[in-house]
Design a protein around this nucleic acid. Structure first.
Lengths: 332, 332
DNA sequence: TTGAAAGCGTTACCAC
DNA sequence: GTGGTAACGCTTTCAA
């Protein structure tokens, strides 16, 4: 049987209150008694039961993190940020994956609450109206991260998508490209795709260039692959800018499979800077979204809120960067 | 304030025992009372506090998972397996990342124990003698996963590395290759590298071919990149078999950067089948290690043990597969 | 079928 | 400084 505070108290010949005091250093204890208690603790290998502690203090030091899929490298990166910063404040991560299932999101929100997490970070791909019901009833700090949809009801952390798309398009234009295709994700009303399109349009308009947008079903590599086929078959571009790295990798795959040289014949750029972007050959020029920082800032916000400091702004904007790599160059 | 069992009891005009009974369906309750209680629960939005429950039942339904780094796709895959199967048995994952820090492994083992996890799965890269002390004192189910070292003191799940390396080498030989270089990880005494080397040697010997092993500092892409340079400069191989996919991707990178065609001029194969293996171009021929299943089997073992069914074998061997892809072909 | 009460391992308040 | 004890929210005997 594992030792409890009682065992320590008995063996040390003091009250459990005293043991509790030395363990938590919460109130003065005479040096001799303290020494004795600490020795006994050592001897018995006593470790406070965090569950019992949580029950009385209401502090579980647990943050619930609900993700779509850890297999997505950008999500692993966010979780990394959450965890590392969380640990700095003694918080641990209770992890749940939804694999895109809306019901699971709700189910896990509830589950995590019964497990007494102090806050929840939800990484989602959907719009899920039911969420609000639960965030409201729980009254715990909540951060909502979503690559597709923006919802001003929840606290979130992101980059300025419009600005980023604008800069990337401008970069390609400055390289000398005139025919720049934009591969857009078609999720109806994806509220975060709009600003990207705007940024692209703005740069093109400013330079009096003709816009050419290709819509895809989703953002997968397969979608990118298909988009590339369409673009190449209509011979309509010297540069392809994709709204998501995943699609961009698909584009590169199509070009590779069809013997089209990148960047000599066509330049390709992405959005995100997920792990493979820098590993794939040619390496992908893209917009580096600071996923690690997004996770870090998210949990920091929750911890701040837990300390009673209300953050005023719901939306936190982080800086991005244009990562220039092998996949882009001047047009031939 | 969130409703407790007391609130429900009072409002429903019954004892808390009765409420507990209907919540857990643990003892017969008269239909009318049951109905009344359930209505009250609904009305108050009552959800049992799992922390309080754990305190009395000793069941936290929490499994501690300590990983090196979620950013490694194979680890994300293992965790996926752990989580999905865990959820089937109502278990949740408490996640900790060590980033290779040995002390962190110990620290988290202790931490997770104070949090009352029912079992621990440790994914490590090191040999850490201290671990035994803790697994022993905790007496909780424990599974140890390590890509480099095998330690028969702990329960573990793996593939037959020797057999896998043998088959991959044989595959290359059957394609017609005679000069096959093996890129080995040099971690001194890495006890899992030995069987791989054996498998390679065995296949080469059986065909009276000259072995040529290149040792690297680690298994990173950079290591693979360097190894490829050495191999190419000494013109010593038509096929390169790497003990880890990461290194193989590095090899492909070097060949790409130096205009050497894969597989036309050199075939490349790996070990693991991590995510990029199938995304990178050319796609990588490799040994598919069932990481998801490794996670799944690990947690299933823990849950079995929790139910009192002791597994007799410490070492569980899972089947692998040779994944043939673009990076290998007959020699020219 | 139901309720009272002990107990899980702590913390925190109140006396002394 | 120290000890006794209520309380946290729940499950589980034990009686009725």
């Amino acid at each position: 049987m594992v030792a409890t505070i009682k065992d320590v108290a008995k063996k040390a010949g003091v009250s459990i209150s005293t043991v509790s005091r030395v363990v938590n250093d919460s109130k003065p204890v005479s040096p001799e008694v303290k020494k004795k208690v600490m020795e006994t603790i050592e001897e018995l290998g006593y470790k406070p039961n965090e569950i019992a502690r949580t029950l009385v203090t209401k502090k579980s030091y647990l943050i619930g993190v609900i993700v779509t899929d850890l297999g997505d490298s950008y999500i692993a990166e966010i979780v990394r940020g959450i965890e590392e910063i969380g640990k700095m404040y003694d918080y641990d991560i209770l992890l749940c994956s939804t694999f895109g299932d809306k019901d699971a999101e709700i189910r896990y929100m509830q589950l995590l609450n019964t497990k007494q997490v102090e806050g929840i970070i939800l990484i989602s791909n959907n719009i899920n109206e039911e969420i609000e019901t639960y965030t409201k009833s729980f009254k715990r700090p909540f951060v909502y991260l979503n690559r597709y949809y923006y919802d001003d009801r929840y606290a979130t952390v992101m980059v300025d998508n419009c600005e980023a798309a604008y800069e990337m398009t401008s970069y390609l234009i400055n390289l000398g490209h005139r025919d720049i295709a934009y591969v857009s994700n078609n999720k109806e009303d994806s509220s975060l795709e709009k600003p990207k399109l705007e940024g692209y349009s703005k740069a093109m308009r400013e330079n009096e260039l003709k816009e050419s947008v290709y819509y895809t079903e989703g953002i997968s590599m397969e979608n990118g692959y298909e988009a590339a086929r369409n673009i190449v078959e209509s011979k309509s571009a010297t540069a392809i800018f994709c709204g998501y790295d995943e699609a961009a990798i698909g584009v590169l795959g199509y070009l590779y499979d069809n013997g089209i040289k990148v960047p000599e014949e066509i330049s390709v750029t992405g959005f995100g800077d997920i792990l493979i972007a820098s590993i794939y050959r040619p390496t992908l020029t893209t917009i580096k979204v600071p996923y690690y920082d997004i996770g870090a800032v998210s949990i920091r916000r929750i911890i701040k809120e837990l300390k009673g400091e209300k953050s005023e702004e719901n939306k936190m904007i982080l800086p991005f960067q244009i990562q220039k790599r092998q996949s882009s160059s001047k047009p031939k």
